[in-house]
Design a protein around this nucleic acid. Structure first.
Lengths: 193, 208
DNA sequence: GCTTTAAAAAGTAACCT
DNA sequence: AGGTTACTTTTGAAAGC
């Protein structure tokens, strides 16, 4: 029986530059910037290389989304700092980065009886009228899992990759123990860590 | 004399006033959707519990009533989607869904799993099809469930496809469009479910 | 509560050819 | 009919309404 696998799809992180920023000036000098304070208080910057998006606020705090690894996140922040300093700002070169949420997709490599799971798991919600997946709130690690009958899953809410790994293996064991997992008819597939 | 005036004006308590407003909203929405009295009464019962628990504070009576109605319909076994119900409300589907979850959690209501079979009677009735079609559609859905073809799919779409297939098998043909409209799903959904059910259940459709 | 970002899962929907 | 795009669900932070 194959072990469950997962892949990090998105990392949301906050960065505190520690200095107030002049968003109007930045918006003028950065051609790629999107800034509509009436609509949203943050300036939106999309990086090409590590394909990430940043929400930059007047207070010097930022939100970075789209990174698929901590390494990508760090490279993106370096690039953002470089861009800001190249356009009139004076922010620290190595600001503090805090990962706030990690979203991962995964595969249990087994079909799931989601109706049975919905009946047996207390912290679950399954309403096919609204959404095809079973929504399961795990207490430890504290994450939310979207479980599909195909065995594909989504894990969100983790702050460390280890929590994603623990959650994915744990849900696999939980579903197997309640007898909601059964082997797929088809042959093997390919998946990564 | 002021006390006397107050007594005359306050012939109703705020609780009673709220209940009356809720009843008005409820009967208006229910009549537009043609929801049976038993279900309306159930919804009112749920609303009273919700009001007593103080869950209406800060929320619109309309949204709460809509959520109670959705819950009552499911309790009674005659489900009505959040879209259908919120359509006759100023509240959005999202707001009604929020109230529904709040109520389900606070009242500790654990509703039975959605069942495509519960959607069949309404579709059959609306299309003026026979009891034979009803039985056949339920049969198809039972087989579909056993083969694990219903997981994650919209029960209304499954029911529509089953009715469509049954109508083809029994010669009381209705178009995909007609069935789709009766079930409140798109033709594409009926077609997709129909193709999958016919294929997986090895149902041979007679060519006309 | 809302606004904005990104991302996956599977299903449904809207619009165009 | 088919194809594309887009929305449903979940998560998290930011500042302001």
């Amino acid at each position: 029986m194959a072990n469950p696998t997962y892949r990090i799809e998105n990392i949301v992180a906050t960065v505190n530059l520690g200095i107030d920023l002049d968003l109007d000036k930045l918006a003028e000098r950065l051609p790629a910037a999107e800034y509509n304070p009436e609509q949203f208080p943050g300036l939106i910057l999309r990086l090409q290389r590590p394909k990430i998006s940043a929400l930059i606020f007047r207070t010097g705090k930022m939100v970075c989304t789209g990174a698929k690894s901590e390494n990508e996140l760090k490279r993106a922040v370096k690039e953002l700092v470089r861009l800001l300093n190249e356009h009139g700002a004076d922010v620290p070169l190595t600001p503090e980065i805090q990962v706030q949420n990690i979203v991962a997709s995964g595969n249990l490599h087994a079909e799931v009886d989601i109706e049975k799971s919905a009946l047996m798991l207390e912290n679950s919600m399954y309403e096919p009228e609204q959404f095809p997946g079973l929504i399961y709130r795990m207490d430890d690690p504290k994450v939310v899992l979207l479980i599909f009958s195909s065995g594909k899953i989504v894990c969100t809410g983790a702050k460390k990759e280890q929590q994603v790994r623990d959650a994915v293996f744990k849900i696999h064991d939980v579903l197997r123990d309640i007898g909601a997992l059964y082997e797929e008819e088809g042959g093997k597939e390919e998946e990564e860590l | 004399k002021y006390r006397k005036w107050q007594q005359r004006v306050r012939v109703q308590t705020s609780y009673e006033r709220n209940i009356i407003q809720a009843m008005n909203e409820l009967s208006r929405i229910s009549s537009q959707l043609g929801i049976p009295k038993a279900c309306v009464d159930e919804a009112m019962g749920v609303y009273e519990q919700v009001l007593t628990k103080g869950l209406v504070r800060g929320r619109s009576v309309e949204a709460i009533v809509a959520a109670c109605l959705h819950m009552a319909c499911r309790k009674i076994g005659m489900p009505r989607s959040l879209d259908e119900i919120s359509q006759y409300t100023r509240a959005s589907r999202k707001e009604v869904a929020r109230c529904f979850r709040l109520i389900a959690r606070e009242l500790g209501v654990r509703l039975p799993l959605s069942d495509p079979k519960l959607y069949v009677p309404r579709i059959v009735e609306q299309l003026k099809l026979s009891g034979e079609i009803l039985k056949e559609a339920l049969n198809i859905l039972e087989q579909a469930k056993r083969k694990g073809l219903t997981a994650g799919k919209d029960p209304a779409g499954l029911a529509a496809a089953a009715v469509y297939i049954a109508s083809l098998l029994r010669g009381e043909v209705r178009t995909q469009k007609e069935v789709a409209m009766a079930a409140q799903v798109t033709e594409v959904t009926v077609r997709n479910r129909y193709k999958e059910l016919a294929r997986e259940l090895n149902i041979k459709i007679p060519i006309k």
